[in-house]
Design a protein around this nucleic acid. Structure first.
Length: 862
RNA sequence: GGGGGCGUGGCGGAAUGGUAGACGCUGCGGAUUUAAAAUCCGUUGACCGUUAAGGUCGUGAGGGUUCAAGUCCCUCCGCCCCUACCA
């Protein structure tokens, strides 16, 4: 009797069995090639959302296929578990951050387990656990030892209401604190930095090694690193100081008519004359109070103030006034610029506003540029003029052009030198927060900043802590934690009370998985060198720069410390698209309030429940604020994890956004039901999966057709997965195979048995539960997931006949069936004799015949 | 302003320069059923053709290369994403 497909029952049954059997544990068999499949680990919010499901399903399919292909696969999961939400929960609900976090982890692990993901849970990590952050601190000390961790004053986002520093991501687009709503100020504080700029060139150059990364992610990183070439030029000030500027256009030095320094420039005070002191001070205060966002707002009118002093242009001896303006940023270049208003738009605007001179040094090819009539800076091609030794040299950065000539001239005269500059800045890692890894250093009055000795790690987070969300780091208030003897001299000393940016935790977690339970080191080098680099990394595009750049940086530093032997952590990267939900919006309402949660809308007649306005429907990324989310648990409860996985893989290519659609989910459920019926009917007919040996040359047409469909499916699914991960087309190939089996006239042949077997095996990585159940119903004792991946039999792909397309003048006019393997001459003959060709060619003269073997014959005729 | 990507049926999406629309969803018609659900079969780009055979058009727009263009080249339009006073 035919049983119904009951996903709830079989899924929990097999999940339990797999856990008991340890089916998903990492296979330690050195003779097999390794494959490391990794999803970006989640923050344990406590709630699994569809974005997670998509991410982990993609990686799981890849891991499962590789296992069947004979690789030993590392496929781990863990938790990016430090971070502010845990502190907020503590403040709002009085639950200790550790307790809140570990509860969430338990909850999310359970949710993950319902998806049938083949993780090796023995390697699970949580960055907030002392077993882990001990090694985060150890790695920090490696950086410290290498001179790559240092402290300096930095301008940070300061919330004047809550009296705390905020991370950039906690400041909204209007420059307000997400918590207090106060306008964020910039404040100078002593902070810890990692010297990522030391690795700027390598981080840029090694992008070339990342052949398996999306081009746009590499571009984003390259732009972020922002390499530019130019020159540093020294201007002497009236007071005799050297004011160094960086410029990418040293050739326009002769057109520099003033200079601008940043309000934070170290020479600012010295350069300011008594007469201007008050105005300059006021300008600096005003600049300091502004957030970076306000300061760099688009289209903002130039502001500035004269310092009262002047410098000498080193190329022509002319005096140029030194101004101060906030459009010059202290943390790019030298914090000072030479202004060439004729050829730089910003300088042009500044010169116009403050009535400063404009000197033309590049004349356009048309020769019609005149400073008296210019309404904008000219940055185009041309030839150098009014530029002494550079006159008549073509303007530009190319070989033999003005920039090259200018650098040569400056270097020869000792007035400057060619340099390379990067936009990348050092990484500020101090956070005035509790729930992070404490920075393991101690301040001693005599010995200075002393690293915590390795043996004393971890510097554990104290459990009893008062979290108010206000003031400096909560750790500073815990006297018996802060006060420790100096590790060097034993005198009374104090701990650093800041914790590390959580991006540090995630910059090395992929290494820990290789040796997750090591108690004496963060990882054994031979283990890490064996498993890494990650063969396939999967995650969201939002980490295109941050996490991926930091991880590359860490890998290179640890390599230089002799701990790793590879340059790049992630060989291939797949950035999966967002999951979008059907979203209702009220077009009459303002942007922020226009979303209407789907739960309060009647889909038959979508109206705003409060105003009665008709609503518009769009697809938008699922989020709480839009009320358009679909809970994974609901879908799994209704259709099962296999259906959810199939839908997500089929609905869109992995890197594109995916529109959640219930009807399509139903479609996948129908497909799995069809597979269920096909296989259970086969099982009940009492046939064996082994079948008789198949003799390809003795098969009838129907069997040959079926075998061709079967082996075409193997080929297509394998190629779709090994190539660019076209899971959507892979699933459609599985559907075609299922359709072919359903259409097969005789379900008792060996070819049919082969088809059933192949369908189950090819489907197994996509839908692990139903395939395991069907496999076992067919009397197989070993897991379907331990079977070898099917291989293509070339002979089975060969058809006796083929469809030949007949074209007249490039237009398809019909097709005929011809024997396969016919040569060009034979194909042309078949085509000539065809009824279609005769009809169209009657009374015409054939000028040319193009024969494409296995495809078509095209007659060019008049 | 700079950089990147994308425009294909009612919808999601397929198409090594070689039959555009695979596969699925939706819609429509039918079978089964007391009825429904489920399932199965057929059909589903537009237009012309009474039916049929067949034809014309059709991948954002316009040009070009080619025997043949969704695919390659040029010009333009539209949308999306990232980034931005970076000297």
């Amino acid at each position: 009797m035919e049983s119904r497909y009951n996903p709830a029952e079989i899924e929990s049954k097999w999940q339990q069995t797999w856990t008991e059997q340890g089916l998903d544990q990492t296979l330690e068999r050195a003779e097999r090639p390794k494959f490391y499949a990794l999803s970006m680990f989640p923050y344990p919010s406590g709630n699994l959302h569809m974005g997670h499901v998509r991410n982990y399903t993609i990686t799981d399919v890849i891991a499962r296929v590789r296992r069947m292909q004979g690789y030993r696969v590392l496929h781990p999961m863990g938790w990016d578990a430090f971070g502010l939400p845990a502190e907020n929960a503590a403040i709002q609900r009085g639950v200790p951050p550790a307790q809140w976090t570990f509860q969430n982890i338990d909850q999310m692990r359970q949710q993950l387990q319902t998806l049938g993901l083949s993780y090796d849970w023995d390697r699970e990590i949580a960055t907030c656990s002392p077993d882990y952050y001990r090694w985060t601190q150890w790695i920090f000390l490696q950086f410290f030892d290498a001179g790559l961790a240092y402290r300096r004053e930095a301008a940070v986002n300061w919330d004047p209401v809550d009296q705390t520093v905020l991370a950039n991501e906690q400041v909204d687009s209007e420059g307000r604190s997400w918590r207090s709503g106060a306008k964020v100020e910039r404040k100078l504080l002593r902070q810890w930095f990692l010297k990522i700029t030391d690795y700027a060139e390598q981080l840029l150059a090694d992008l070339d090694q990342l052949t398996g990364w999306p081009e746009r992610v590499k571009l984003m990183q390259a732009n972020w690193i922002g390499k530019s070439t130019g020159a540093q030029v020294t201007f002497k000030t009236e007071a005799g100081d050297n004011l160094v500027v960086y410029t990418t256009r040293p050739d326009t030095l002769w057109g520099a008519t003033f200079m601008v320094i940043s309000p934070e420039h170290p020479l600012a005070e010295k350069l300011t004359t008594a007469a201007q002191a008050e105005a300059v001070k006021a300008y600096q205060t005003q600049a300091a109070a502004m957030s970076e966002i306000d300061r760099t707002a688009e289209g903002r009118e130039k502001t500035g103030v004269w310092t009262g002093s002047q410098a000498v242009n080193p190329v022509n001896g002319e005096k140029v006034p030194i101004w101060m303006a906030d459009y010059v940023l202290m943390d790019y270049g030298t914090g000072a610029i030479m202004a060439v208003p004729a050829h730089d738009q910003r300088d042009f605007e500044f010169a116009k506003k403050f009535d400063l001179p404009i000197d033309l040094v590049v004349q356009s090819p048309a020769g019609d540029l005149d400073v008296a009539t210019m309404t904008a800076a000219y940055a185009g091609e041309g030839v150098m003029v009014n530029s002494g030794p550079l006159d008549s040299v073509p303007a530009g950065k190319g070989p033999g052009q003005s920039v090259e000539a200018a650098v040569k001239w400056l270097e020869a005269k000792g007035k400057g030198q060619g340099t390379t500059n990067y936009r990348l800045r050092d990484w500020l890692i101090s956070r005035q927060r509790y729930w992070g890894a404490p920075i393991p250093v101690i301040y001693c009055a005599d010995c200075g900043c002393v690293p915590v000795p390795e043996a004393d790690l971890p510097v554990a987070l104290p459990e009893q802590v008062d979290l108010s969300g206000r003031g400096a780091s909560p750790l500073a208030k815990i006297e018996n934690w802060v006060n420790v003897p100096c590790p060097q001299c034993g005198a009374a000393a104090k701990r650093e009370t800041d914790t590390m940016d959580t991006f540090i935790d995630s910059s090395w977690y992929f290494l820990r998985y290789a040796d997750a339970q090591n108690e004496s080191r963060p990882f054994a080098s031979d283990q890490a060198n064996d498993w890494l680099p990650v063969d396939q990394y999967v995650g969201g595009i939002e980490h295109a720069i941050l996490h991926l750049l930091y991880s590359r940086f860490f890998t290179k530093v640890l390599r230089d410390r002799g701990l790793l032997n590879f340059d790049e952590p992630f060989q291939r990267l797949l950035t999966q698209g967002m999951v979008q939900g059907l979203t209702y919006l009220n077009p009459k309402k303002a942007d922020k309030d226009k979303w209407v949660p789907a739960s309060s809308v009647d889909p038959e007649d979508p109206r705003d429940p409060t105003t009665g306005d008709p609503l518009e429907m769009v697809y938008a990324t699922m989020s709480k604020s839009k009320g358009n989310g679909v809970a994974p648990g609901d879908v799994i409860a209704k259709y099962g994890a296999d259906t959810a996985r199939m839908f997500i893989l089929f609905k869109a290519p992995p890197e594109k956004d995916l529109e959640w659609d219930d009807a399509d989910v139903e479609g996948q459920f129908r497909f799995l039901n069809r597979v269920w019926r096909l296989v259970t009917a086969f099982a009940e007919s009492g046939q064996s999966l082994k079948g008789d040996a198949i003799q390809q040359d003795q098969l009838g047409k129907a069997e040959k057709d079926l075998r061709r469909a079967v082996h075409t499916a193997i080929k297509a699914v394998t190629e779709d997965i090994e190539g660019d991960y076209q899971f959507n087309t892979a699933v459609s190939e599985l559907m075609k195979l299922s359709n072919a089996l359903g259409d097969a006239p005789d379900p008792t042949t060996p070819a049919y048995a082969e088809g059933i077997r192949t369908l189950i095996l090819l489907l197994a990585p996509f839908s692990p539960h139903i395939t395991e159940e069907l496999w076992s119903q067919l009397g197989q004792s070993d897991s379907v997931h331990r079977q070898p991946w099917p291989t293509v039999e070339a002979a089975a792909l060969v058809a006796d006949e083929m469809t030949l397309v007949i074209q007249i003048m490039g237009k398809t006019r019909g097709t005929i069936q011809v024997p396969a393997g016919a040569d060009k001459a034979a194909l042309e003959n078949y085509a000539r004799e065809s009824e279609v060709a005769q009809r169209y060619l009657e009374g015409k003269q054939i000028k040319k015949v193009i024969v494409v073997p296995n495809k078509l014959v095209n007659f060019v005729a008049m």
